[in-house]
């Protein structure tokens, strides 16, 4: 339509877009630059913006001198188990909420929504005592249980939206052919909702990966820490290890950026589905 027409407002528009993108990305770009500086460049005042050559000492320090791989492993085990449990439990519930008739569905949906607003701090004290009594402090399970619960609301809302979109005739014909509810769910509905299930899985994973309060409180042993807590604990007694922290943040952020770039459409639709239709 307006192709090739280079006008001033068009240029201004692009300048605005680029400015916004720069502001959004700047802290991260700065972190990358910091992570590859030499010790001398990092501590110079005023700051040196662009390092003369790439220096990987801080990455070496993060992975070799600190047990950062262990933190990543902890986070990965906790987040992926949470994702599996949450998606499984949520898809059962969402199937029923989206496609079956029974009393109390609206109450259940409102309850689920209410739980998504729960402040973690409101339940952390009894959960801590519980985890202490059953010896689940400093374990993976101790985190997976609350994470599964708190990723359920978003998962249920998302999956309910997806399950509703599948045509009802498919299900009816399967039922006519003598399939049980469970068979219809497992063989017809669940596979058809695969994209929705996948989106929900990504969102659950990211939210479990990023959780801080429970991880900080329940898993206090260094070797059981998750990535967000480990990074928050980097500052020791003395000078702040800015280089290590920068390198560690880059290591954690890059996989997330890749996930976001590949699945941006799905993530956005998953994040916004509840807000618009709800």
């Amino acid at each position: 339509m307006k192709k090739n027409r280079v006008n001033i407002s068009g240029i201004l528009f692009y300048i605005l877009v680029i400015a916004v993108m720069l502001i959004i990305l700047f802290p991260f770009i700065w972190q990358i630059l910091t992570s590859i500086k030499s010790e001398r460049e990092l501590w110079s005042i005023p700051p040196i913006w662009i390092p003369k050559k790439i220096n990987l000492d801080y990455y070496y320090s993060v992975f070799i001198k600190r047990p950062f791989l262990t933190y990543i492993k902890n986070s990965f085990i906790v987040a992926s188990s949470t994702t599996v449990f949450s998606v499984l439990v949520a898809s059962f519930a969402s199937y029923a909420l989206a496609r079956l008739h029974f009393k109390g569905k609206n109450i259940i949906l409102s309850l689920v929504l209410a739980v998504s607003m729960f402040p973690g701090i409101a339940i952390v004290s009894p959960l801590y005592i519980f985890m202490m009594n059953v010896h689940l402090l400093n374990t993976y399970i101790g985190l997976i249980i609350p994470y599964t619960t708190f990723t359920l609301p978003l998962a249920i809302w998302n999956l309910t939206t997806f399950f509703r979109e599948i045509p009802f005739e498919l299900e009816e014909s399967a039922r006519v052919d003598g399939a049980t509810y469970m068979q219809t769910f497992m063989r017809i509905i669940f596979p058809l909702a695969a994209p929705g299930v996948f989106t929900t899985a990504i969102l659950s994973f990211i939210s479990a990966w990023n959780e801080f309060l429970f991880a900080l409180v329940f898993n206090t042993k260094d070797m059981m820490r998750t990535v967000p807590v480990a990074i928050a604990m980097f500052p020791g007694e003395h000078e702040l290890p800015w280089g290590d922290m920068a390198a560690a943040s880059v290591v954690v952020t890059i996989p997330l950026i890749i996930i976001v770039l590949i699945f941006q459409r799905r993530i956005i639709s998953g994040l916004t589905a509840g807000a618009i239709k709800g």
Partner: peptide, 24 residues
């Protein structure tokens, strides 16, 4: 690209973004 960039701050752990800002 703009939309993908917008997802980056959302996706990273808050502690990481807090550390970034602490240094800034």
């Amino acid at each position: 690209l703009m939309r993908a960039a917008a997802l980056v701050p959302w996706a990273i752990p808050t502690t990481v973004s807090a550390m970034m800002w602490k240094f800034i």
